[in-house]
Amino acid sequence: MQNITKEELKQRIDAGEQLNILDVREPHERAEFNIGGFHIPLGLVQTMQVDEIEHLKDEEVIVYCRSGNRSGQACMLLETMGFTNVKNLTGGMLNWQA
């Protein structure tokens, strides 16, 4: 698992790059604020219910949560499922909004 900073991610989003972003927070957290992408709560990742992103196994997937902890767990789980290029957003949405 690699990390990506908010500055790196913001720069890539602002440049219009097509990114595979995955939010692993709960629905109520996502409703408050999100930066887009797929939404699969960590609990579903843990039970391997990731059909929605299965086609991204060989592509870069940037994972985020509130603080970076759940997304770190999700990254490790995705790697065990065969995802080859997952990145954790350092500090999550708390850092993003700071």
Rank of each mutant, 00 (worst) to 15 (best):
V86R: 02
M81R: 04
K87S: 08
T47D: 10
N88C: 11
M1H: 10
W96K: 05
N34Q: 11
N20D: 00
Q97L: 15
I35N: 03
A98Q: 12
E79S: 11
E59H: 06
P41K: 02
H55C: 04
A98M: 11
D51Q: 14
V24E: 00
A31K: 13
N34S: 15
T90G: 00
E7A: 11
R70S: 08
T80S: 15
P27A: 06
Y64H: 13
N3H: 15
V86D: 00
D14H: 04
D14M: 07
I40H: 00
I13N: 04
M1T: 10
N95E: 15
H28A: 15
G91R: 00
E52A: 11
L44W: 13
L94Y: 14
L78E: 01
G43E: 11
R12H: 08
D14K: 13
M76Y: 13
C65V: 12
T84H: 14
Y64I: 00
K10D: 10
H39C: 08
K57F: 03
L42S: 05
F33K: 13
K57C: 04
G72A: 14
V61T: 04
G91A: 01
N88M: 13
K6V: 13
V86G: 01
I13M: 12
F33M: 14
Q18K: 15
H55L: 08
D51Y: 00
T84S: 10
G92A: 09
T47P: 01
V63N: 04
N20W: 00
Q18M: 15
E17L: 13
Q2L: 15
I53A: 04
N69M: 11
E59P: 05
D58Q: 15
K57E: 02
G68S: 04
D23K: 09
L56D: 05
L44G: 00
A15Q: 14
L56H: 10
K57D: 01
L77I: 15
E8D: 10
M81W: 03
T84G: 14
A15G: 10
Q97T: 09
E54V: 12
F33L: 13
G91F: 05
L9F: 00
I40L: 07
T90H: 05
G91L: 01
I4C: 01
P27V: 10
D23E: 12
Q97I: 13
I35R: 08
A98R: 03
E8L: 05
L94Q: 12
E32S: 14
V45L: 09
V63Q: 03
V86M: 06
V86W: 02
L89A: 05
G36A: 11
T5I: 12
N3C: 12
E54M: 14
K10G: 07
R66Y: 02
N85L: 06
M48W: 11
E59T: 09
I4T: 09
L78Q: 03
M48Y: 09
M93H: 05
I62Q: 00
L89F: 02
G72E: 02
Y64C: 06
D23L: 08
